[in-house]
Nucleic acid binder design. Structure first.
Lengths: 201, 201
DNA sequence: CCCCGGACATACTGCGCAGGATGTAGGGAA
DNA sequence: TTCCCTACATCCTGCGCAGTATGTCCGGGG
């Protein structure tokens, strides 16, 4: 840490959270090395263990304070749109045209962490489940609004469609990430657009 | 290893592969402990390293000789059916009614391993990608047959629908596994059935 | 009968890692 | 100014693990 940054506990903590998020994103939680986080942030081990009582606690804080806002921010626009289906299709097409590169290479950090840790550690599981539920319920609520407004077929179950949608989204990211298979991701997005159209009346 | 099983190289090798598959299924590849595999199989470390030159090589062999047949076996019936959509819907409903417990608890071993290793190790990546491609192409081919037979709408892209389908399947298993969330999995399956119906003319 | 190589068994090493023990410096309250 | 607690810094330790070195035994070919 540079001299200018000494003795700024909030900033140090935030720096650790952000560097940990990046490292976890690249390597996953288990493979994330504390030493790597420390090197990247310029913070020492003593400082880290002053702010967080264990690697696991650091991970939990990353979920609460970085990953959750990241997800909220990412999906807010689509979820709050008047017409979810149009917004989602637009979102897909935007992805198809411009840089989905970051997503392809590193995948969705939520999905990565969920797959790795949700089953193994209840602290992660509860937190990630809460994010997932909120996301899913947001979609379901938006679909219900769409049904009332006549944008969405009335015979689809919002809950089922929402679960299916998040499954398809995370599944396609997970499968596409691994090998930078742009073609696969494009095909899956196309299929998603087809599905979204089928929800129309 | 019991006395009766000594000096049977093929059987020893097979035993190792199967125990490794189970251990990997439970813990993932990285967290899979060779010592645990050895204890479960009753084989010693010398024997293991006689048959496989590294943990990674063991993992690759597990994919080739256990996981691939497991997947082939699992999906063959659906892929070869006359009417893919009916077969898939039936498959979903069978899952909904009887024990999806094993899948819920441990998830799909292909999906688990793909998420964990495909990006990190080219040996795993190539093998798993091949399985995925074969699966996806099987679905696409089946959809094309369905189009010729009039079971499937002619305006859907088989390639896109196949990619979307495998994404949704693996995504729902991945998300449902983590926390034994039966409700989520059921909703996702219901959504899947809805999607499958929408592929009908 | 010998002997040689494949099929194991046992004991050890080295490494990366999370985490702990202990030391120190800055800055605000009295 | 003194004091004291927060916010760090440094060094050490123990553990689990993959991988290795070396020994041994069985079974078949000559």
């Amino acid at each position: 840490m540079t001299a200018a940054l000494k003795r700024q506990p909030d900033r140090t903590r935030q720096l650790l959270l952000e560097c940990a998020f990046e490292e976890i994103r690249r390597s996953g939680f288990r493979a994330a090395s504390l030493d790597a986080i420390l090197e990247r942030s310029g913070v020492t081990k003593g400082a880290l263990y002053h702010h967080f009582e264990s690697k696991t606690a650091l991970g939990h804080a990353v979920v609460d304070e970085v990953l959750r806002p990241w997800m909220d921010d990412r999906w807010q626009a689509v979820l709050n749109a008047d017409d979810l289906i149009s917004a989602a299709i637009q979102h897909c097409e935007a992805l198809l045209q411009q840089g989905m590169d970051e997503l392809l290479i590193q995948g969705c950090p939520f999905n990565n962490l969920f797959n790795e840790m949700a089953a193994a550690d209840a602290g992660f599981g509860d937190r990630l489940q809460a994010i997932l539920d909120q996301w899913r319920e947001g979609i379901a609520a938006s679909l219900r609004r769409g049904q009332r407004a006549g944008h969405v077929r009335s015979d689809v179950s919002p809950v089922a469609a929402a679960a299916f949608l998040v499954s398809a989204i995370e599944g396609s990211m997970g499968l596409a990430r691994a090998r930078q298979s742009r073609a696969f991701f494009e095909a899956a997005l196309q299929g998603m657009v087809g599905y979204l159209h089928s929800l129309r009346p």
